[in-house]
Design a protein around this nucleic acid. Structure first.
Lengths: 230, 230
DNA sequence: CGCCCTTCGATTGTCTAACAAGTACACATG
DNA sequence: CATGTGTACTTGTTAGACAATCGAAGGGCG
C-alpha cells in the first residue's frame, strides 16, 4: 500500500489543491470562489469548503470580506514593492549573519548550479531554482519563525509570477552571476557588501515586476553602469 | 444595553476574547480548550467555537493536533531563543535602514519617555511601553508585511511574559538607557552600531528569560564589562 | 504483582438540513 | 436619469447526528 497519502484532513487536502491551482495559474487573480462552488467541485459539505477557504484567507492567498465571496488576491504594484522590500529586510540581515560565520549553505550552491545548467528558454523554469536559492539562505540560519515568514512571502511572490509568466524579466545568466557573487561575499565574510548586492538584486527584480504589472518602474530597474552591455 | 460586543463576526469576537484571556494569564500555558467547552461558555454552536479555536491556532497562540484537544502553547527555552532571534533579525535590519535616513520615529521617543516616567515597582508595567518602543521602530519603515510579522512575534513574547510576571528580569533604567542610546545612534546615522547594541539588548533579555524558565542561560545574560556596577 | 490488551468515554472530523442576515444587481417608479 | 425596492445569491450561524480516533481505566495473563 503506497497510495495512502490522504492528508488526514479533508479541509487540508482541499486547501492544498486550491493552493496548487492558484500557483499554477488555473485560478487567476481576482477569480471568485464561492463556498458552494468549492463544496460541489470537491463533493464535500459546505462547512468543509468554508474551512478550506478560510485557511487560504489566513495564508493571504485569498481575500474576502464579511458576507462577500472570496477571491484570489490581486497584487498591485504597491503590494509587490511591499513584498520585495520585506524580502530584502529579512534576507539582507540573514546574509550579514551568515557572513559572520562564513557559512555558505550547500543548498544555495546547488540551486545556483541548477540555474547555470538551465539551457531551456522557458522563462518560468528559472523561478523554482531561484526561489530555492533564496530559501536555502534563509533556512541556513536555522530559525523556524524566520523560515515560516519567508515562506509566506514566497507564496505571494509566486502569486505575482503567474501573472507575468510569459515574458522573462531578467537574464538568467545575470541572476546566476549575482547569486554567485553573493555566495563569494559571504565566504569572504563581507556581510555589508553581500547585503548591498542583494538589495540591488531584489530591487531590480522588484521594479521590473512592477513595470510588467503596469506600474511605473523606479530607477532600480536599470542595470548598474558597470554591467551595461557595450 | 452597552455590553453588545458583537463586532461583526461571532467567531472573531470569541477569538478576540480568548486571545485577551490568554494574554492576561487567565488561560495559562498548557491550558486545554475543548470545542464543547468554548461553545458552552460563550453559548454558541460547536462549529462556531471550532472556528474561533482554529483562528488562534493559525495565529500560533494555540496548539493542536488532529483529533486532539487544543491547548495554549507552551514555549520552552529553545522557542524563546527562536522568537528573540527572529526579533533581532527583523529589528536590527530595520535599525540600519532607519539610520540611513536618520529617521527617529516619534512614537519610539514617546514610548521611551513613558518608560522613564515609570516610578511604580510593578514589573509588568514596563512591558507595554517597551513593546510600544520596539513596534514603533518597526512600523516606522512603513512595510505592512514586516509589521504583521513582528506583531505575530510580539504575541508570542507576551505569551512568555505572563509566565514570568512576578520577577522583574531587568532594570527599568537600563532598558530606558539602551533605548535612548539606540535612538541616538539612529540619529547619528550609525546603523551598524545601533544594530549591534540591539543585539546585546535583546540577547540579554532573551537569556534572562530563558534562565527564568528553567533553561541554562548563555553568556549574553551578563552585563557588558563597562556597565558592571562598581 | 506487574504488564499488555481490550473496552469505553470523551473529543474531534464531517455531514445534512435549515434559517437568518447581508450584499449585489435588476427592475420598476418618480 | 436618479432613486427606491425587491429578489436571488451568498454567507453566518445553528442544531443534531454519526464515524473515527485518542486517552485512560479496567480486566486477563504471565
Amino acid at each position: 500500500m503506497a497510495g495512502r497519502i490522504t492528508a488526514v484532513s479533508i479541509v487540508d487536502a482541499i486547501a492544498a489543491d486550491l493552493r496548487a491551482r492558484i500557483f499554477s495559474g488555473d485560478l487567476g487573480s481576482g477569480h471568485t470562489l464561492t463556498e458552494t462552488d468549492v463544496a460541489s467541485t470537491y463533493e464535500v459539505a459546505r462547512p468543509t469548503a468554508k474551512a478550506s477557504i478560510e485557511k487560504l484567507v489566513a495564508e493571504g492567498l485569498l481575500d474576502r470580506g464579511t458576507h462577500k465571496t472570496a477571491r484570489v488576491v490581486e497584487l498591485g504594484p504597491d503590494s509587490v514593492r511591499d513584498i520585495y522590500l520585506a524580502r530584502a529586510y529579512l534576507e539582507s540581515e540573514v546574509l550579514r549573519r551568515l557572513a559572520r560565520t562564513k557559512d555558505v549553505p550547500e543548498g544555495a550552491v546547488q540551486a545556483n548550479r541548477d540555474i547555470a545548467a538551465l539551457q531551456t528558454g522557458a522563462p518560468l523554469d528559472v523561478i523554482e531554482p531561484d526561489m530555492r536559492f533564496h530559501t536555502s539562505l534563509i533556512d541556513a540560519v536555522g530559525n523556524e519563525r524566520i523560515s515560516r515568514m519567508y515562506r509566506s512571502l514566497v507564496g505571494e511572490v509566486k502569486l505575482c509570477m503567474v501573472r507575468i509568466q510569459s515574458l522573462h524579466l531578467l537574464d538568467t545568466a545575470l541572476i546566476q552571476a549575482e547569486h554567485q557573487r553573493i555566495l563569494e561575499l559571504i565566504e569572504a565574510g563581507q556581510g555589508d557588501a553581500a547585503a548591498e548586492l542583494l538589495d540591488e538584486h531584489l530591487g531590480r527584480a522588484r521594479e521590473r515586476l512592477v513595470s510588467a504589472m503596469g506600474g511605473t518602474a523606479g530607477p532600480e530597474a536599470d542595470l548598474p553602469s558597470d554591467l551595461l552591455p557595450e
